[in-house]
């Protein structure tokens, strides 16, 4: 029964930790398209090592360490990939855990901030993510140059990000 109990707690914690783990891995890998593959390796390793986890300790801290070593291993194996941080920076970033705010909290903050954007701007921003269109494709659709649209998207995301952070500051985790 004890084994089942621990198993249940482990699955629970692993499931809950996924968004945070993904964010952490994405950070170390410069948002590489391989992020999900590395995350998968992390999940596998966490499962194999599940008996090492002391249920009285914070699961995420342990998971971050496993993710860190997996990310390092990935960088070592793919050292010729175009956008890879150097080990010194990965180590530095690896020690800085993501903040305490949950994905849901951030989403609520984001929605409030989105509602403050003008309708056409909001639509442009969401369209960028909704259909996963390239800036060129979107620019063609909007009838503007790719460079102008790219700058506009940068400004909008900057504004949104600033608003979200302010919002989260006023609602600490």
């Amino acid at each position: 029964m004890k084994e089942n109990e621990d198993y249940s707690i482990f699955v629970n914690e692993l499931t809950k930790a996924q968004p945070k783990m993904r964010g952490y891995v994405a950070k170390l890998l410069a948002n590489s398209p391989s992020t999900d593959d590395v995350l998968q390796e992390c999940n596998k390793l966490l499962w194999i090592k599940r008996t090492d986890w002391d249920t009285n300790t914070i699961f995420l801290k342990w998971a971050y360490r496993v993710c860190y070593f997996q990310a390092m291993a990935y960088c070592r194996d793919k050292s010729r990939e175009r956008l890879l941080f150097n080990p010194e920076l990965i180590e530095m970033m690896g020690q800085e855990n993501p903040d305490e705010h949950t994905h849901s909290e951030r989403e609520v903050a984001m929605e409030q901030c989105l509602s403050k954007l003008k309708e056409p701007n909001r639509e442009i921003l969401l369209e960028r993510y909704r259909n996963n269109l390239s800036v060129e494709q979107m620019a063609e659709k909007e009838g503007v140059t790719a460079n102008a649209l790219s700058q506009k998207l940068l400004r909008l995301r900057y504004k949104l990000q600033h608003c979200i952070q302010e919002n989260l500051k006023s609602n600490p985790a």
Partner: peptide, 20 residues
């Protein structure tokens, strides 16, 4: 700046999941 990068990545993830 590293903190800003982390925060932007999280916002990027939220925007992605929000629209998809």
């Amino acid at each position: 700046l590293r903190k800003y990068y982390q925060d932007c990545l999280e916002t990027h993830a939220v925007l992605s999941s929000y629209t998809r």
